[in-house]
């Protein structure tokens, strides 16, 4: 990150006797995946621009346990969850924002029964809240004026948690032309990465799921396929490349679009 944008950790905050208003849960993809790191940085820039006092866990953060839970490894999931809950409760964390729908779903829905109770928001919800509170005033700008954008609903944001509107409302701020795929919102088609598929070869079939989905998105001839999940981003990017359309169609996270519109 640039010199002006600091990324404080919870430990540093605590040492300085400060309390952040929100913890940014970065997630494994956001921390390590080169493509997803760009989304992480875009969100940090937005938080900075809106003067949000945030912190990350840094090296104290660990996998939420989502892929283990979906695969059926409840032991590993609960070990991860309980370790994370110890850390989060140790810092008395109340509010969490994350750019990963899998972390979002797990922390929000599955941590409470293990003793972790937090108000968890997906970054699209959090950014919308910043705009609603007047802390972030998107100029709309010329960057995306008239461009065709379609939104791919991440399963664990949309169907799994009924968050359909927050990302779309942000896209509308861009003054772009929002076009919907036939399979959108509660009928959205998976990118193929969920349920721990991200970490294994697909079972035998006649097509990859991300190809099916990218085909559907590309049929709309969008300049941008927007999404809100690092794994969807990977799958859709690969799908677009498969059709040699990476010059015409970019796969971007909603946070990146907002950051770009703001010249951040």
């Amino acid at each position: 990150m640039s010199e002006q944008v600091k990324v404080p950790t919870m430990a540093e905050m605590l040492a300085a006797s400060e309390v952040p208003e929100v913890l940014f849960w970065v997630g494994c993809a956001g921390s390590f995946d080169d493509r997803a790191k760009k989304i992480t940085k875009a969100l940090v820039k937005i938080l900075h621009k809106a003067s949000v006092k945030f912190a990350v866990l840094g090296t104290e953060e660990s996998c939420s346990g989502d892929p283990a839970k979906r695969a059926g490894n409840e032991f590993l999931f609960q070990m991860q969850a309980m370790m994370n809950i110890q850390v989060l409760n140790g810092y008395e964390v109340k509010n969490i924002v994350t750019a990963c729908p899998h972390c979002f779903n797990t922390l929000k829905n599955e941590y409470p029964e293990l003793g972790g109770n937090y108000k968890v928001l997906h970054h699209t919800q959090f950014i919308r809240q910043l705009i609603d509170e007047g802390r972030l005033k998107p100029k709309g700008g010329q960057a995306f004026k008239g461009k065709r954008i379609t939104f791919h609903d991440p399963c664990y944001l949309g169907r799994a948690n009924s968050v359909f509107e927050a990302p779309r409302e942000l896209l509308e701020k861009l003054d772009a032309e929002l076009v919907e795929m036939k399979r959108c919102k509660s009928k959205g088609l998976c990118c193929g990465a969920g349920g721990a598929q991200m970490f294994k070869e697909a079972e035998k079939g006649n097509k990859e799921v991300n190809i099916e989905r990218s085909e559907e998105a590309l049929a709309l001839k969008p300049q941008i396929i927007a999404t809100g999940c690092p794994f969807c981003n990977t799958m859709m990017t690969d799908g677009v490349k498969n059709f040699n359309k990476e010059d015409e169609t970019k796969v971007m996270d909603v946070a990146e679009l907002i950051a770009q519109a703001e010249d951040l």
Partner: peptide, 15 residues
């Protein structure tokens, strides 16, 4: 602490 073989100590390298 991640599904890939990255060191936990590098978790904040992106910053």
């Amino acid at each position: 602490g991640a599904p890939w073989a990255f060191a936990q100590a590098d978790r904040l390298k992106w910053a």
